[in-house]
Amino acid sequence: MIVEFKNASLSYGDDRETLSDLNMALGEGEFRFLTGPSGAGKTSLLKMIYLALRPTKGDFSLFGENAMDAPREALPALRRRIGVVFQEFRLLDHLTAFENVALPMKVAGINQNQYREDVSELLNWVDLGDRMDAKPATLSGGEKQRVALARALVSKPDLILADEPTGNVDPAMSERIMKLFIELNKLGAAVIVATHDLHMVQSLGKPVLRISDGKLSRAPGSGGAA
């Protein structure tokens, strides 16, 4: 299993559980949409998966390893297998678009000569080939979104997490991004996309997980299992 939660719960220091009794399994090459109202816990679930938070109760494994008790030193290697498109982009303002996209390669100690072509190719693909040297402050919301997307994909991760990846792009780019996720999924990457865009969810016909009141469930009529 790529991601597996068993009876997991999350609380932020108080007694109230943001997510409770979470059971979920995501295998290799599987695709899930994650939907639910704002504040329901979608981002918290994604944070647990990319190891920014850990469940306060239950079991959680990532890439077959126990992530509940994984030592601090083991986390970077797990995180490098995950590509995350953050809702708020989280680009580094003092770096150019090129350097932001190259960040996962740089922290992995890969020489620039080895990733320069891949980074340039990705930026071209998201129509930012002529904005490689631009700093995030000079980019529009949509352009930042595409830089964040390129950064998430550059290391060819085994698991792609996207939090509202099409929230700031036009419909054409939105469709293109979703097709890219599906193509990457076909190549073997597991994908979880959190979104409010129910039209897109229905049109792609992929399994859907729904979070409501801190509970995760399979959406009615959706294929696959939670």
């Binding site: 072509e117 190719e121 930026l123 693909w125 080939g129 060819k156 193509e183 190549l187 990457a189």
Partner: peptide
């Protein structure tokens, strides 16, 4: 996912235009 895939899916032409 293949870590050797040099080009993005469906992006062969644009990849060729990447600045050297």
């Amino acid at each position: 996912m293949s870590r050797n895939s040099a080009q993005m899916p469906g992006n062969q032409n644009e990849a060729e235009e990447a600045p050297k």
